[in-house]
């Protein structure tokens, strides 16, 4: 997924408008499966690739703290969106939401369906309805010059 997007951009098959989100401070969340777990299972965690793609889409984004291997869990992993244990799931999203607030970000970019669903689902619980949650490939599609 990351490699394909990078290939399209590097080979000039898609052109991106970097000014589209000039007025929005964005940040990036590392999903466990693409990051820590991929590194452990396959010997490569996708830490730098999504950040390179973000750099092609916008000037204005900041990393969360902590990030990459030390990233906080979104709280929606392991199927917890579907177990019915929702109070627990919302509670462990708190750390994530505090982290996003601390970064001052108005947009969170994620390359994972579970993280995307979880953050969108809990943002009302933490008075963060204005936070825009975007798939990484959605950001790329939004910036397409067509």
């Amino acid at each position: 997924m990351f490699e394909l997007l990078i290939q399209y951009i590097r080979e000039g098959r898609i052109k991106l408008d970097k000014s589209k989100f000039d007025n929005v401070l964005a940040t990036y969340h590392d999903p466990c499966n693409y990051a820590r777990k991929a590194e452990k299972l396959f010997g490569h965690g996708y830490f730098d690739e999504p950040r390179w793609i973000l750099d092609q889409c916008m000037e204005n984004w900041v990393d969360l703290y902590p990030a990459k291997r030390e990233q906080f869990c979104c709280g929606g992993g392991g199927g917890t969106m579907t177990t019915g244990y929702n109070a627990e799931r919302i509670l462990y999203g708190k750390k994530k939401m505090d982290q996003i607030k601390a970064a001052g970000a108005k947009m969170l970019v994620v390359p994972c369906h579970s993280c995307h669903g979880q953050i969108n689902n809990i943002k009302k619980e933490y008075e963060m309805e204005d936070l825009e949650v975007k798939y990484l490939w959605e950001l790329v599609a939004d910036c397409l010059k067509v």
């Binding site: 466990c32 452990k40 291997r69 869990c73 709280g75 992993g77 392991g78 917890t80 244990y85 462990y92």
Partner: peptide, 15 residues
Amino acid sequence: ARWPWICTMCAKCEH
């Protein structure tokens, strides 16, 4: 136990 089901398997512990 409910424990294994409320874990998100995020692997911070393993890390």
